[in-house]
Design a protein around this nucleic acid. Sequence first.
DNA 1: CCAAGTACATAACAACACAAAGTACTTTAT
DNA 2: ATAAAGTACTTTGTGTTGTTATGTACTTGG
Lengths: 107, 107
Amino acid sequence: MNSQLKRGTLEMCVLVIVSRKDCYGYELINQISACMQITEGTIYPLLKRLKEQGSIDSYIVESQEGPPRKYYSITEEGERTKQVQLQEWQEFINGVKKIINGGGSDE
Amino acid sequence: MNSQLKRGTLEMCVLVIVSRKDCYGYELINQISACMQITEGTIYPLLKRLKEQGSIDSYIVESQEGPPRKYYSITEEGERTKQVQLQEWQEFINGVKKIINGGGSDE
DNA sequence: CCAAGTACATAACAACACAAAGTACTTTAT
DNA sequence: ATAAAGTACTTTGTGTTGTTATGTACTTGG
């Protein structure tokens, strides 16, 4: 898969998933990798950025089947960011569609 | 606009437009900027990369209304690359759609 | 004890959009 | 003439961010 395509989209995907239910990193990797190739080195730095931006919060939960899990939940600001990004995403793919099958005007 | 979204997509857009008819850089900028914000610093290096990859060829045409224009045409290899990228693009936006309104399975 | 699975973190790297600045030609206004 | 604006291409530096690789640490099974 073209790795460049993921840029700017992964953040939106993570926000969407976390807004549905609190998740920990490893869980997100498994969930997202069902649809696109992804690794730890992509998700963990992204989660860190999102937390620094104030889009998500985190809390630790001990686990009986391995090391403790760091759960992430969406903040109000994250919810707003998510909405903006979903909107931008729609506009963007519409623009690309227009270019692919039109030229510049319409078809 | 989220500039990261363009990554990996612009190349496809340029290939699509050039495959319809030979274009020069300045023309491409005007055409693409109808749908998404874009500047010279984005297109010219991209055209250079595409030529180095063998996806497009170029030839100079003198102009009466300014400096000579460097026209680009798609190669057979560029045509194949275009097809692959269009396919990948479709699969990618389908994957994102699935994440946005499903979770991982379906809805 | 060691491998494998779970879980997180970080450092080095590479790709690429973008801003900015430069070159160079033509036309129009001063 | 010359200054400004539009056309057209090029290059350099920077910032963002996905990827690879590595390290830490816990638990379970052989």
